[in-house]
Design a protein around this nucleic acid. Structure first.
Lengths: 313, 313
DNA sequence: CGGTTCCATAACCTTGGGGCATGGATGTCG
DNA sequence: CGACATCCATGCCCCAAGGTTATGGAACCG
């Protein structure tokens, strides 16, 4: 008797949401599809998993029995996925590195060249993360390392080799009334509409809206952007303002966008991240060293942070 | 990224067999199907899981990484299946009992009536096991209890409420030359062809061939039977002889079949079995008591064994 | 050098799972 | 009190996934 883990994920989502409609939205499937999936599980297991009502779906004892076990099973599979993919990449001497947003432009030919010198025969595969998947494929084992601007509180969930810190700045349409000021204060921006990244990004979205710094005050969302270009366009059109790492002002300078420092906005931590339960392989360590040696070459504000991360003595 | 557990089972089978052809036979699918399944896994995981050669399939490092984790995952799912099905049956106040072979005839209306008296509102669902599935659905949680003639060495793998012991007798065509003897000796039967049950039954098959008692001496297989009727027919036609529990001589008496006691053949243990990791529910306990009170009513040789099993004080 | 043993490929067919549109039951609010 | 909103179920259609049989190709074995 076999199942697709997709059914278990659907089941878990319905358990958490307490209703089909919401779970279907979260899973990006239609509601009838979820109805069928749950029924399928129920047929397989020989009993009702949920009690249906107009309020939604409440798990039965059988449903609870499954719910207890579905989580560990899914975690087990994700782990297997990660480990096997890592081994497969190792097999073909490939390091898979993800980059967040435009930060990839900071990498130079020198970085890869340096890495190749340290690990002869190896190659680097670069993947730009999209804004939908804040884990950047780390969770599913699609990549080994990711170069991130992460908030320190998120960094605790990963192993990290810190490369430095970078201020977050505000981006405004150059015609914006506040663009005249050379420096802004965070309080002045509280009532501004913001260009947000998608909900799916979770903590990541909150971080770039500086939700924590707002002290519970709700954010006005002027637009939602799915990549850097959309984001810039929305800013230019005055749909809202946004926060970005300082490097963006150099990597994507535009006349119609004003980048301004913000008093009271914490900086972001720049570093290479990898999963907590993943050991640092020689190739990963070599890449960290290559980044230290070459990234930010020139005029960036980065400094080597105090925490070197495990295995990097 | 999702998988069907079927893919993992296929993968595990190929790992164990070391080649597609044999694994396909074991899984009852065609070899091209397995080829596709393994390829599918490899695509999903982004690398080769096996090294192909004319000798078969040898797992790569990635394959070994997955192999380590596939076992626990499958075990986890089987456990979830068992637990959820059990809870679902409990939900609708149903006890699912499996029976091996003709033993079901020993149950009487009294057994069920007694159970219903102990557990008002509950019902019993009886399923006759087939000879292909020696676990009788215990492993997959399709039933709660099974009434078995098990060899003592297999009994150690289950929780068991012993009901008694029963001699194994030999069944021969009445025209067989040995049928003239009132009692046979095991040694006389060593060179006889036997009517076996299917290979899929595993230990179970060996047990009814008395493989252990033969001291390594190979068995001649005269025919393979898939159920009691086939088995009896094969015996009658002289394709071979066979061993059976003594009750069979009373439940399936035929003029053309001679049942004879065998010196040197160990008896089988009769009892209700349930999985090691399954607690005894009130309904299960009640059924055990009902069997003790009613099964073998009349003239069976059964006695209550010394071991009562856990939870039956 | 034919035969055997394994795995891969091709062509075909059936099933199943997903989407859309709609229905039914039940609270809720004006 | 009736129209509406909410949430799950059903029916229909369609495409893709996965299974089977038949066949090919590479390597070992007498």
């Amino acid at each position: 008797m076999d199942v697709d883990t997709r059914l278990l994920r659907s089941f878990a989502a319905v358990c958490e949401e307490g209703q089909l409609t919401a779970a279907a939205a979260r899973l990006f499937v239609s509601q009838p599809t979820l109805t069928k999936q749950i029924r399928q599980l129920e047929t397989l297991l020989g009993g009702e998993l949920f009690e249906r009502s107009r309020r939604g779906m409440a798990p039965t004892p059988a449903g609870r029995a499954l719910a207890e076990r579905a989580g560990p099973m899914l975690a087990g599979w994700d782990d297997a996925l990660r480990a096997t993919r890592a081994a497969a990449a190792e097999q073909v001497a490939t390091l898979r590195v993800g980059f967040e947003g435009g930060i990839i432009n900071l990498m130079s030919r020198r970085t890869v060249a340096d890495f190749t010198r340290r690990m002869p025969g190896w190659q680097v595969e670069l993947r730009q993360n999209n804004w939908f998947d804040p884990t950047s494929g780390l969770a599913t084992g699609e990549i080994d390392l990711t170069l991130w601007h992460a908030p320190p509180y998120l960094a605790a969930q990963y192993n990290v080799a810190v490369l430095g810190e970078e201020p977050r700045v505000a981006a405004l349409s150059s015609g914006h009334r506040l663009a005249a000021q050379a420096e802004l204060s965070f309080e002045d921006l509280l009532d501004e509409p913001f260009v947000a990244i998608p909900h799916e990004a979770g903590h990541w979205r909150d971080y770039w809206l500086a939700a924590r710094e707002r002290g519970g005050r709700p954010v006005r969302i002027g637009a939602v952007a799915h990549n850097t270009d959309e984001w810039l366009a929305a800013v230019v059109c005055g749909q809202g303002i946004g926060f970005a790492p300082e490097t963006m002002s150099r990597l994507a300078p535009r006349e119609d966008v004003a980048y301004r420092p913000v008093r009271g906005l914490s900086p972001s931590q720049v570093g290479l991240y990898w999963p907590k339960d993943r050991e640092l392989t020689p190739a990963m360590a070599a890449f960290v060293r290559s980044c230290r040696a070459t990234v930010g070459y020139g005029a960036t504000a980065w400094e080597t942070g105090p925490g070197d991360g495990p295995g990097l003595a």
